[in-house]
Amino acid sequence: MNLQAVKILFLKDLFLSRRQLFAYFAAGLASSALTTIPNPTVSFVGFLLMITVAIASGIHLIGTLMLSESTDQTRLFVMSMPISLLDYSVGKIAVILTTYLIPWSAMFASSAILTFVLPTSKHGSFAVLPAIFLFLLCAFLIQLVTAVVSESVGWTISVMVGCNVGLNVFFMQLFASPEISAAAKSDSVSWPPVLIQLLTVELLIAAGALVTAFIAQTRKRDLV
């Protein structure tokens, strides 16, 4: 792997996605600000918007930075330069992950702060935030890896649909668990074992997705 080339590709894509990055960062902050308004409907809308921004930014970044390179035929231009498929894939995953993580972190951090600052909020609800945000990150990584490995819009969209259905199931299951519900409603932060298990599984899935992408890309023989 040529780190210099990876860096150049990373900076190139970061520059290309600058407008989107700014828009999603702003949308993320705005939606988490909405959740602070002491009206249950408005703050719920804020929460939904935040989840939507997280999903939409992921889809948009994968679409414009990854899939469009094939459809717009800019990929051939990049691959004709002294860049290996591994350099290319590492650069792509790194930049898409970075651009995703910026609004994601902003939303995560602002939600976390709000659970402690808002007078209406129970401090214990902080404990479910990592699980929710890690789920969003996992879903995003699976979509990203599908896009990088399959280079196919069809496959990526199928996986995106699957992940969004999965998100609803996840929320239902999350609050159906009495331990997690109890922890979320308590006044102090506590970590029931089931939540720790969930976080571990999520981290393993995230790592597994990245390793899969790495292995799949080193085994590919054709660059375009």
């Binding site: 040529n2 080339a5 590919k220």
Partner: peptide, 13 residues
């Protein structure tokens, strides 16, 4: 295809 360095001296259009 795994060796990118060889492409340094080739111009492809």
């Amino acid at each position: 295809s795994s060796d990118a360095a060889a492409k340094q001296d080739i111009g492809y259009f």
